[in-house]
């Protein structure tokens, strides 16, 4: 392992932890809006008013006695996801992909029965997965069927797209692919692959795993350099719209592409990580400063998305190939 000089990092415009916390999160994210993003149920309800689609809500389990109704609903379902509303980092999420007579098939292929799911629900209500163990609410959502063009890149799990939205402008994006190391999760520090995406075109730029550049996905063996996201402009506009919905000036928007319903919002993050810069091979600071220095900000999400696609595009500067 080597070191890099702070001057070089500065030159590259790398945003660091302290500056992110002081200059961006604490300045642009009002504490009052945090509950909106820390609670998936609230996020769902509030973004719906701004025409941002999320996976269809099937049931909300708030009380222990409502679990019996879950049994009735679940009997007719093929696939669904159970999530704790206040969970973080994908904890406590159980995804059911199909049925095997009376049993339910988890994403990993394991079979579980209804009483397992009921116990899981009551654990969620007791706050087993929520921050600081406070009582929680379980939400049951329609399962996301990832569009096959993207799904093949991921080892289990659904690939998602993280977009950093600053004052309503999408400034940087990456595609996150689960790996064996990350155990089907899409968190970069757990070993998921991050593929930087060009804001202008939605095409892949560069890929990293464990902060190292890679060319091929370690499990699926597919080349990561020519991925293109469909309906890119629409997704950027969706992400930009979340700014109006939540009022958070600096946030991470996680989107998935459903095979039938198109792009859906998965969750919002008020403290998005810094690894996205490594996936893109670019620093965030120049882009954030461009937005901060705008004399006349754009008012509609569409205008902001168009501006970002124009200003942060790599078109005239083709993605460099990595020599590793």
């Amino acid at each position: 392992m080597g070191w890099i000089s702070p001057f070089k990092l500065n030159q590259l415009g790398m945003l660091n932890m302290n500056r992110r916390n002081v200059d961006y999160i604490s300045r642009y994210n009002s504490r009052a809006f945090y509950p909106l993003v820390d609670n998936k149920l609230k996020t769902k309800l509030v973004v719906a008013e701004y025409d941002v689609p999320t996976p269809r809500l099937l049931q909300v389990v708030r009380q222990q006695h409502e679990i019996s109704r879950f049994r009735e609903i679940a009997a007719d379902l093929k696939g669904f996801a159970i999530k704790p509303a206040k969970g973080s980092g994908g904890k406590g999420i159980t995804v059911i992909t199909g049925r095997d007579n009376e049993d339910y098939v988890k994403a990993s292929g394991a079979r579980v029965n209804i009483s397992y799911l009921e116990r899981h629900l009551s654990n969620i209500l007791a706050g087993l997965y929520s921050l600081a163990g406070t009582p929680d609410v379980a939400i049951i959502e329609n399962i996301v069927e990832s569009s096959p063009t993207l799904a093949r890149y991921s080892h289990q799990g659904v690939p998602d797209i993280r977009i950093i939205v600053f004052q309503g402008y999408p400034v940087m994006a990456m595609l996150r692919l689960a790996t064996k190391d990350s155990d089907g999760k899409a968190n970069l520090h757990q070993g998921a692959v991050g593929v930087g995406l060009d804001i202008g075109t939605g095409r892949s730029l560069n890929a990293v795993q464990f902060n190292r550049s890679i060319i091929l996905h370690p499990d699926t063996g597919l080349a990561l350099e020519n991925i293109a996201i469909e309906a890119w402009g629409e997704m950027l506009e969706m992400a930009a719209r979340c700014y109006e919905a939540t009022g958070l000036g600096y946030m991470g928007v996680d989107l998935v592409v459903d095979a039938t319903e198109g792009p859906l919002l998965l969750e919002l993050n008020a403290r998005p990580g810094l690894a996205i810069q490594m996936a893109n091979g670019r620093g965030l600071l120049p882009r954030l400063r461009t937005i901060e220095s705008l004399k006349r900000p754009h008012f509609t999400p569409r205008e902001r998305a168009t501006f970002a696609m124009d200003a942060f595009s790599e078109r005239w500067q083709p993605a460099r190939k990595q020599a590793t």
Partner: peptide
């Protein structure tokens, strides 16, 4: 961030 050296 040292892998960023490559992009300098």
């Amino acid at each position: 961030f040292h892998p960023m050296k490559v992009y300098g």
